[in-house]
């Protein structure tokens, strides 16, 4: 049985993203790309838990630029028999429909009996991709699957997770894209396999190789276009009224300065007695405190 696993290379957004000096734009440096955890579990499920009778071959596919190579190398190290990267510079600005069509064309090349992926994706945009690819390929997309109970050549019976702990058993005609909510245990590739995977060349197929064109699937085919991008409005800072005890001239100067300097933190150090004195002095300065 031929199994394809869709693997997405995502920025690890579980850790704080580095942003530029204005706090507006994520900075490339410091970002860590990882294998989407859900897809990694799906790969583990495909390799170790899938109830397949007879032979099984697993192909990991990833649509992405050069950064995706490392993701596929780890898949290869974990045991995928084949990996395939799908990329073309025309896809850089393509929408999910264009990318989905491309992925569907790649799946047609691999001719899998079953396609697996993770149900969750750290990257919100990429979470649509397996569903769109299934639609473009004209096959079913079954999300929220906890287990594949039975797997035949052309059919499968899967259990889907519903709200409030309910489960439903679904009969699926294959090939289909099945998005798993759980997978196997985390894979720890062996050293020799890792080294072998990182020594290999990762095959990459472009749009021409898939028989597609940039006009149909690239950025130019996008049905929605970004017209403009506006940054979030800054939160207005209410100017603090100057201390009424100050002379009028100083109050005016403070207002004309464009507001009073933002309150800043203060770090105190020293002996416990000194610290206590500093804290009391600090509280006395506070308008709200009455010491």
């Amino acid at each position: 049985m031929k199994i394809a696993v869709l693997v997405r290379n995502v920025v690890d957004c579980r850790i704080p993203l580095p942003v530029d000096e204005f706090g507006e734009k994520p900075l490339l440096e410091g970002m860590i790309n990882i294998v989407n955890p859900g897809d990694w579990l799906a790969l583990d499920y495909a390799l170790n838990s899938l109830p397949v009778r007879g032979d099984k071959s697993v192909t990991a596919l990833s649509l992405g630029d050069k950064e995706s190579e490392e993701t596929l190398r780890w898949c290869r190290a974990a045991g995928a028999q084949r990996v395939l990267r799908i990329w073309d510079s025309a896809l850089a600005g393509a929408d999910q429909l264009g990318k989905g069509k491309t992925l569907a064309a790649a799946l047609a090349r691999v001719e899998p009996d079953l396609v697996l992926c993770g149900d969750n994706c750290l990257d919100q945009m990429l979470s649509l991709l397996p569903g769109v690819a299934a639609a473009a390929a004209g096959i079913s997309y079954v999300p929220g699957v906890t287990t594949i109970e039975r797997l035949e050549k052309e059919t499968a019976v899967v259990v889907r997770k519903l709200e409030k702990g309910r489960r439903e058993r679904v009969h699926v005609r294959l090939p289909a894209v099945i998005a798993l909510v759980d997978g196997g245990d985390s894979l720890y590739p062996d050293l020799p396999d890792s080294v072998a995977a990182f020594s290999e060349t990762v095959p990459c197929i472009d749009l021409a190789g898939l028989g597609l064109s940039a006009e149909n699937t690239g950025e130019r085919a996008n049905l929605a276009h970004t017209v403009s991008l506006r940054l979030a409005r800054p939160v207005p800072v209410r100017p603090v009224t100057p201390d009424p005890n100050l002379p009028a001239e100083q109050r005016l100067r403070k207002i004309l300065q464009g507001g009073v300097a933002r309150k800043q933190g203060e770090i105190a150090s020293g002996s416990p007695e000194q610290l206590a004195d500093r804290i009391i002095a600090f509280l006395r300065r506070e308008p709200g405190a009455r010491l």
């Binding site: 720890y188 590739p189 062996d190 050293l191 890792s194 990182f198």
Partner: peptide, 30 residues
């Protein structure tokens, strides 16, 4: 060949010669 996320935790000896390393959490030796 660059292999990240690999913490070397031990060396492999054969007699007085060092012949490789072991990586934490991974089976096998290099």
């Amino acid at each position: 060949v660059l292999l990240a996320q690999s913490t070397v935790e031990d060396i492999i000896r054969e007699g007085s010669q060092i012949v490789g390393v072991r990586v934490r959490g991974r089976r096998g030796e290099l």
